[in-house]
Design a protein around this nucleic acid. Structure first.
Length: 468
RNA sequence: GCUCCCUUCGUCUAGAGGCCUAGGACGGAGCCCUCUCAAGGCUUAAACACCGGUUCGAAUCCGGUAGGGAGCGCCA
């Protein structure tokens, strides 16, 4: 039997980090077993589902490169099928019409709460034989009253529920539209899903679904309930925690491989290994190694992973990512070689592309003014001789390469009897406007001779006429 | 309230009865390297929620307690 997993989000918002991990695990499990990964959009709640949300989820999965083998399927296009199965259940006596009004149900719940009981439908329409005139009934599933329903959960082990704890859930609303617990069963059945991997907030739904499968005479899939993902403070994930949408991570300068690597390790591990390529994840992933307890997001670790992939990745490819972020701050750059060179030079000092873009502006545009403190300390009468010396050495340089620039620097240091810092730092301020940049030789090389000489001249002029 | 789930350093985790003086990673601290910022190297502090059992032996098995969480919709 080939493994078939599904990711079944409801399009009521963007793809958040928890959903992304669920999708990743489903995808990994399918890939690992050479099976299929199916995407299903659970949009039966027409009030809250939006096309934008559907697109946002698709975008998020595309960014993470989690391709579905089948789908996306939309539940709203399958209403006929749900109606058909509901009818079957009704005809076989597994479902019945309930005419209770919402107010009546609410009152019942209130009374139960007052009695400190678990609020649930008491089955008062179970044996009704006559319709109530003028009332469009809902269809309720006739849940078994005795016995137990056991989930053989792949991550939690057996979870036992007394059927007497379960009530008769509504499978079709009075307008005839189907509800969640029912559509899930019909879809998982029709799509021949073998493994349902989802958040453990669904554990309580599972016995109901299992009973519907049983009534339908169908073998249910295996279940694996994943622990929740918490915010950095250990509380429930929310918008207050910053980047909740996976696309927000892209905006913030993260690489999809870093996000994926981070996510795969949140709730799953393979010994002490921290870095996983896509292929390694596929080869190594197993539900047996998934944890049971909820885990909090650690932004620092994601940052660390992101930088790991920035340092590790192909500079040309990463250059396109840098270009995207430069564009976002108003800089249009097309020189792929220069972008790659900047990526290589900045990789060690940038945890995100957003930061890298910000720190790399001076490579691509003239800076407006010097950082006041930096200029005061590094562009003054004391450093003028070194700048002048370098100005002529750089002008005379045969090959504009980091090696040659470095040699010129060494020669300058020897000639003037000063420390390297005494010339490197003034030069840095001269060409970048501030005190932070990649090593000065590499910085000058990337900038190019013309730009460097122009900026050095500008610095010298600044020293000679500080008022300007 | 009821049902269900969870509990190893701050965080992510290793750990399937003796390999545990509890390991790794992020973050922290210190040192080294150094033209800035970083990156890197080395060192270091830091945890088995609690109480009982079972066993020659328990982080690992069992029971209870405490704490956290989820669910209890004509939402998904």
């Amino acid at each position: 039997m080939t493994v078939r997993t599904r990711f079944a989000p409801s399009p009521t918002g963007f793809l958040h980090i928890g959903g992304a991990r669920t999708a990743l695990y489903c995808w990994l499990y399918a890939r690992h077993h050479h099976g299929q990964f199916i995407l299903r959009v659970e949009d039966t709640d027409r009030e809250r589902s939006t096309d934008e949300a559907v697109q946002a989820i698709l975008d998020g999965m595309a960014w993470l490169d989690l391709k579905a083998d089948e789908g996306p399927f939309y539940q709203t296009r399958r209403f006929d099928r749900y109606r058909e199965v509901a009818r079957q259940l009704y005809e076989q006596g597994h479902a019945y019409h309930c005419y209770c009004s919402k107010q009546e149900l609410e009152q019942m719940r209130a009374e139960q709460m007052a009695r400190k009981e678990k609020p649930r439908y008491d089955g008062r329409c179970r044996h009704r034989t006559e319709p109530v005139p003028g009332v469009q009934p809902v269809l309720r599933f006739r849940n078994p009253e005795q016995g137990q329903t056991i989930i053989h959960d792949l991550v939690h082990g057996d979870i036992v529920f007394e059927n007497s704890e379960l009530d008769d859930l509504i499978i079709a609303r009075s307008d005839g539209t189907p509800t969640y617990n029912f559509t899930v069963v019909v879809d998982d059945m029709d799509m021949r899903i073998t493994h349902v991997i989802r958040g453990d907030d669904h554990i309580n739904n599972t016995p109901r679904q299992l009973n519907i499968f049983k009534a339908l005479g169908v073998t249910p899939p295996e279940y694996a309930h994943l622990p929740m993902i918490l915010g950095p403070d250990g509380t429930k994930l929310s918008k207050r925690h910053g980047a909740v949408s996976v696309m927000q991570y892209r905006e913030d300068g993260f690489l999809p491989e870093a996000v994926l690597n981070y996510l795969v390790r949140l709730g799953w591990s393979h010994g002490d290994q921290e870095i996983f390529s896509r292929d390694e994840m596929v080869a190594l992933f197993d539900i047996a190694d998934v944890n049971k307890s909820a885990s909090a997001i650690n932004p620092d670790k994601l940052l660390w992973l992101n930088q790991h992939y920035i340092k590790q990745g192909d500079a040309t490819r990463l250059g396109t990512e840098l270009r995207w972020h430069l564009e976002r701050i108003g800089l249009k750059v097309d020189d792929a070689n220069k972008l790659a060179a900047v990526v290589r030079a900045q990789a060690e000092r940038a945890k995100t592309f957003k930061d890298m873009a910000l720190a790399s502006r001076f490579f691509f545009e003239e800076f407006a003014e010097y950082d006041a403190q930096a200029a005061a300390k590094n562009l003054n009468a004391e450093t003028l001789p070194a700048l002048r010396d370098m100005q002529s050495r750089l002008t005379a340089l045969e090959n504009w390469s980091a090696e040659q620039i470095h040699a010129a620097l060494e020669a300058c240091v020897t000639a003037l009897g000063i420390k390297l810092g005494k010339v490197a730092q003034p030069l840095r301020v001269a060409v970048s406007g501030g005190t932070v940049s990649p090593p000065i030789d590499a910085t000058l090389e990337i900038l190019g001779r013309d730009t460097v000489l122009t900026r050095v001249a500008r610095a010298i002029a600044h020293i000679e006429a500080p008022a300007a």
